[in-house]
Amino acid sequence: MRPDLEITLDRLAQATTLEELQSETLRLRDESGIANVVYHWTNLKGEQFGAGTYAPEWAVHYINQNYIRVDPVVSGCFNRFHPVEWKQLDWSGKAARAFLGEAVEAGVGRQGLSVPLRGPNGQFALFTVTDECADSAWRAYADERTRDLILIAHFFNQKALEIRRGTDYAEVMRLSPREIDALTMLAIGYSRAQAAERLSISEHTLRVYIESARSKLGAANTTHAVAKALTLGLILL
């Protein structure tokens, strides 16, 4: 099943506590019909924070054993910015093999896809989905869902940072006048072609400006971005 991206991002936008982020991972897992959805956060000071659907015993064991030093997913995603398939990682070392054995035992799943995330001050996080299914089924799932997962991952990290910081600081204030113009025209019912013409830019360029605004607003698509900008009072009709 495919969870609705817009609903997911709206729920995330309303989250104000780490517990709510935790609940969101459970919902996402159930809606997606996969084994696990996990968010794992660390920083330069070595602090760790997690939200996710792994068995609590596994999470505790992972921390106690300091598995962050052994886990090929962490070393393989650190200093990367592309989504990483667990298959691409090096599981050949003795410690990594033992770790994988325990992880599979604990229900982590053999299939995994992790999106590396970066925040200020050396913050590093991973947003991961896992399952037990066969390679072909996993391939199909990843092909269909990776783009949505990238968007959810980035917004999830943004919310986690906001909550940790304990402020309401919102990135949306960084929308430029041009992005606001573009959203405003769509809000009043202009087509993309009409809006582009009004702004004296190509439709192609307009798409990128809207994609940029969509990303900053944490919206799922253009319509959602327009709705969010209206709700936030960024555009006035």
Binding site: S176, P177, R178, E211, S212, R214, S215
Partner: peptide, 27 residues
């Protein structure tokens, strides 16, 4: 480089993108 971090375009060429800081995990 990902546009979710520092980029040359946003740091130095905002005047060429209509002042839009192009920023998306998909770009």
């Amino acid at each position: 480089l990902p546009t979710t971090g520092d980029t040359m375009v946003s740091d130095h060429f905002l005047h060429l993108t209509d002042g839009v800081r192009i920023e998306s995990p998909l770009i």
